[in-house]
Amino acid sequence: MSDARILDRGYRAYEGSRSGVAGAVRSVAWHTVRSILGLGRKGRHKVFPVVVIVIGFVPAVAFLAIAILLGDFGDEVRPEYWEFFNFSVMAALVFTALVAPEAIVRDRRDGMYALYLSTPLTRPTYLLAKVIAVAGTLSIITAGPALLAFLGYTFQGLGPEGVVDGIWVGARVVLAGVAISVIYTAVSLGASSLTDRRAFASVAVILLMLGLSLATALMVDAAGMTESLRLLDPLGTPLEIPARLFGNRTVEYIDIGTLPVVLANLGWLLLGAGTLVYRYRRLAAV
């Protein structure tokens, strides 16, 4: 083995341009996406992301495969675009509870948070990068199956008629997916900001989302309480967004107007985001 070593690599001054705050946000967001998906990390970090993708896309792929193999099997059976959002709800929940907390909890635990704030990033721009990363990745899971259906139906000749109609359908699918993702992200990161332990964060998110969802369902369906209590369900209420965007209502929310649905979703968004911002304003950087 050679003893030869490179002694001077020539540390140089840098005269080029710097990407500033926008570049810092982009870099942290991309790094976070890679981190939460387990890219460039050991195999065990890829387990949950793979599970999420599988359970998110399998139902949509199954329906599309049936549609392709059997042709048009009738409007009664074929799910509408907004219904595909319900297929991915469990995947979204797993992501929100088990994957998303990693985006911020890890930084506080391993010292990256202090280092990030010594760069052009500030607390708000740091959190913006994290929200972009988590909501962006989650959007693939929420809107992905519906977009897949949109493409599948279109290729089968069962999709929208004309380019304008196609763009309108596609835009509503994307808008609904992003809206759900942003609300779930706010709730998840808000709960995760309360602890430095990912496991505790996951339990908190599960209790908040699944626990409240089950509790409101029991109160309304079993105890016969007012339907409006469903608006306290942070898991189900955002799923009403695609239904309303496509001019429909889900069975559970059929007696609830669109304005209360919008306000309830806004409330969950503000509660999550508010908790997150409040916690980070009080968190010492150095």
Partner: peptide, 23 residues
Amino acid sequence: RNVLPEDMPASDFVKHLAEVRGM
């Protein structure tokens, strides 16, 4: 604070922070 991301190679860590600082 002497805590750094455990599973990150040193080169990735330094590169990432250089990017965040605008490189």
